[in-house]
Amino acid sequence: MSSTNLQYMLTSLLGAEHANQLSDLLQIPASTLRPRADTVSRIEIAQALNMLLFEKLLKAVPQGNDYVQDSVRAGNKIRFDHGALRTVLGISTGTLPAGEAAFTRILRPLGYHVNGVYPLQRISMTGRAYAHEDDAEEIAQFFLSELHPHHFSSEFQATVNKVLSTSQDPVDAHSAQLLQQLGNDKSLPLADALALLPVLVACFDRQHALPSIAEYQVLLAESAEMAWISTEGNAFNHATDRVANVEQVADAQRALGRAIKEKIEVSRNGRVRQTAFRASTVTRPMRDDNGVMVEMKVPGSFYEFISRDRYLDEETRQEKLDLTFDSGNAQGIFKMTASSNAASC
């Protein structure tokens, strides 16, 4: 792998030892292991981004990192299925595009297309799955959800607007130009890809100022998901490991004393099964009513597990992996970041 574009990009950004450690964690799709060249394809850039984001999630979720390290010691590699993130539609978001537009401008040039739309009515959100056109089964998908503030009270909407109006767009003019070039050519010169990747990673973070404690409580009273967005922004809400038997994995993790969801979420067609660790607790500085900064404990991100069955496509008569999601599953999994209140440290 050291002679591939993918490893060269990772080594250039992380250093050789760090890049090798990351590569040892994950199953690398063969479609992304292309010989070194002066130009890199969109699928190689997409895979590099996915690996960097996966590692970023592990740094934020100690329980997930412990599981991954256990897996590597046992001689297994993680099959990264999808990453999930949250956005907000139809509200002032400063210089950052509102809703999924902040990420479709990234995902489409990278080769992703909408592979399903999922109404999440119980939590007033809409989810969209993005699969890679060049290797849908092996390249991690993105599950991108939008919250609809207009479904909530006027006080809630005003608070959302106040918090998110401070957002700053991490994509500068040069990076936007590179994304347009990538979309047109389906490739970039290697030097440009290396310049673009850190900017793309930075997009998956909080771009706005933290709320005050009072603002956080207003949001939390009506939407745990919006309260989470107010402190964590567009960071990966979770990353997901595709495993052969999610039930066995859950039992094994429970036996180790790790906080994992009791219920397995099963799709209506029965082919997709999911569970997850409880979300990590993180501390965020927020101002109290007197303007004093207080360290508050709030829900962070989490690590998920999924099993997907293969099925016979009736139209093509070909066997396929079920890459779909399920609205019921998603809303059940989203509860992993729900919290009844924020607590000071």
Rank of each mutant, 00 (worst) to 15 (best):
S2D: 15
L13K: 14
L14H: 03
G15K: 01
S23Y: 15
D24N: 15
R34V: 14
P35W: 00
A37T: 10
M51H: 14
L52R: 07
E55R: 12
L58Q: 05
A60D: 12
V61N: 15
Q63E: 13
G64L: 10
Q69A: 15
A74I: 07
L85T: 12
T87D: 05
V88R: 01
P97M: 01
F103S: 02
T104D: 04
T104H: 02
I106G: 09
P109Q: 04
Y112P: 12
Y112A: 10
H113K: 14
G116M: 03
Y118Q: 07
Q121W: 12
S124A: 10
M125E: 13
G127H: 02
A131M: 11
E137L: 05
E138F: 15
A140Q: 14
E146A: 08
L147Q: 05
A158F: 03
T159E: 05
K162C: 05
L164A: 04
D169T: 03
H174I: 12
Q181D: 09
Q181I: 05
G183S: 02
G183V: 01
S187D: 11
L197P: 03
V201N: 02
A202N: 10
A209D: 13
G233A: 01
N237R: 08
H238L: 04
T240V: 10
R242A: 13
V246Q: 00
V249C: 07
R254I: 09
A259Y: 10
I260N: 04
E262M: 02
R268L: 10
R284V: 14
P285K: 02
D288G: 03
D288Y: 00
K297M: 14
V298A: 03
Y303L: 02
E304T: 11
I306S: 08
Y311F: 15
D313T: 02
E315L: 15
T316S: 12
E319P: 03
N329R: 04
A330T: 12
F334P: 02
T337E: 09
A338H: 10
N341S: 13
C345I: 12
